[in-house]
């Protein structure tokens, strides 16, 4: 359960103040698949950073599983990211010189999980992101863009997070591989995962069950997606 209450974020550069988010409030229930949509400069990246506990708001509260994340220190935020959030970025998702398996295990390394437990959980995550076993020992720089995103999804799953936060996950992919990735998200949603997808493309946002439009730091529209696209892709099963 995610609750955002009256969040404002102001960036200061010298004497200038830029208001990136103005008094934003919303909540996301467990198991929801929400797309946050907006053009560049709308404040969606700022919102993504706050939701991902990469940054703290200037004012307001952000409750993640009932815990207020807004006032935590840098290292406490690192723990929150490690335990409760799974990230899928647009690019540079994986350590290039490490194997797929090692990449997926990395959050567990920082969580201090023992080696054999780590391997067990990484295997489970790789299976649920539908990654064939013969990729596991490949180095991540040997993979294609779509494959990298699916490894990133597996890594996002490995800590069993409250929230999977995807920032333009299909931004660097062609539409066919993008569909495989979106189908993977939809399947995870059906399995009960909470997913927040940040994008500027309506086509991508339409794969979610709820769409929030953000513009000039404010939420303009928030509602159920009535024209939902459901993709079934055999590769994502």
């Amino acid at each position: 359960m995610i609750e955002v209450k009256n969040i404002t974020k102001i960036y200061k550069t010298g004497d200038f103040e830029t208001v990136a988010l103005k008094n934003v409030s919303f909540s996301v229930r467990d198991g929801e698949f929400v797309a946050i949509m907006g053009p560049s400069g709308s404040g969606k990246s700022t919102l993504m950073h706050l939701l991902g506990a990469l940054d703290t708001p200037t004012s307001g509260e952000y409750l993640l599983d009932g815990k207020n994340v807004a006032k935590l220190s840098e290292d406490e935020l690192a723990d929150i990211r490690n335990e409760k959030i799974g990230f899928v970025f647009q690019q540079f998702n994986l350590l290039p010189r490490a194997t797929v398996f090692r990449n997926v295990m990395l959050p567990l390394v920082y969580a201090g999980v023992e080696r054999d437990k780590r391997e067990e959980r990484a295997k489970k995550a790789l299976v649920s992101a539908a990654l064939p076993e013969d990729w596991w020992q490949h180095h991540s720089n040997e993979l294609s863009g779509g494959q990298i995103q699916r490894v990133a999804i597996a890594r996002a799953l490995v800590n069993n997070p409250t929230l999977i936060l995807a920032d333009e996950p299909t931004g660097n992919l062609d539409s066919k591989t993008g569909e495989i990735v979106l189908a993977t998200f939809q399947r995870l949603h059906q399995e009960g995962r909470t997913i927040v997808l940040i994008t500027h493309e309506l086509y991508v946002a339409e794969h979610a069950e709820r769409i929030m439009h953000i513009r000039d730091g404010e939420i303009k529209e928030d509602g159920k997606n009535h024209s939902r696209r459901i993709v079934h892709h055999p590769a994502a099963e």
């Binding site: 991902g52 990469l54 840098e74 290292d75 690192a78 723990d79 990211r81 490690n82 335990e83 990230f87 970025f89 540079f92 998702n93 994986l94 350590l95 990395l106 959050p107 920082y110 969580a111 890594r155 800590n159």
Partner: peptide, 16 residues
């Protein structure tokens, strides 16, 4: 730098 950013995003603390 980006590797450090990624590591931090997935939970690495300063000490790590």
């Amino acid at each position: 730098t980006r590797e450090i950013g990624l590591r931090k995003a997935i939970g690495a603390k300063k000490k790590d």
